[in-house]
Every structure is written in C-alpha cells, then in structure tokens.
C-alpha cells in the first residue's frame, strides 16, 4: 500500500492498494462542484502511466488539478519502484 499527500486544506491524500481490477474511489469536500473533474484527472494520469489494475483512493480537501495529478504521479512512481 502506498500513501502520498496530506489531509490539509488544498491538498489530497492518495492511497494505492494492489488489486485485480481498476477501482477508483473519490471522497471530496467539493465533490458536487468538481467530482467529475477529479475523476477525469485520476483516470487520465493512470492511463498515461499504463496502470490498469489497482485500487486508488483519493481523499480530497479541495486540491487543485495539478495537486491531484502530482500526488498520484508520486504514488505511481513509488508503487512501480516497489515492484507492484
């Protein structure tokens, strides 16, 4: 399991757990306004890194897109480094 980021305001906490399929969970304080956008950023970033199997949890405290992407990229880099 990989955890990146924080639960501070304007940040998000990304968790990656090995899984047999692709599962994306988003929990955001701005879900009504930006939920779709957050999901889009996560899917796009995963696709670019060729991740097709993993359980991704995003706990969002109002992070902007660049932060969500950066936290996820960091998590993916660590995930791949650890040989999942």
């Amino acid at each position: 399991m990989i955890i990146v980021g924080t639960l501070e305001s304007s940040d998000c906490l990304i968790t990656i757990i090995p899984a047999e399929t692709l599962i994306i969970e988003v929990d955001s304080i701005v879900y009504d306004a930006f939920g779709q956008q957050i999901c889009h950023v996560i899917k796009h970033t995963l696709a670019k890194a060729n991740i097709t199997k993993a359980h991704i949890i995003c706990q969002d405290k109002g992070a902007l897109d660049y932060t969500i992407k950066a936290r996820l990229e960091t998590a993916i880099a660590r995930y791949q480094e650890e040989g999942f």
Binding site: V30, D32, A33, G35
Partner: peptide
C-alpha cells in the same frame, strides 16, 4: 486555478 464548477 480551480476549473469551472459543475452546476449546483
């Protein structure tokens, strides 16, 4: 910065 919020 934020993107355009979806309808409320």
């Amino acid at each position: 910065y934020t993107g355009i919020p979806e309808s409320f």
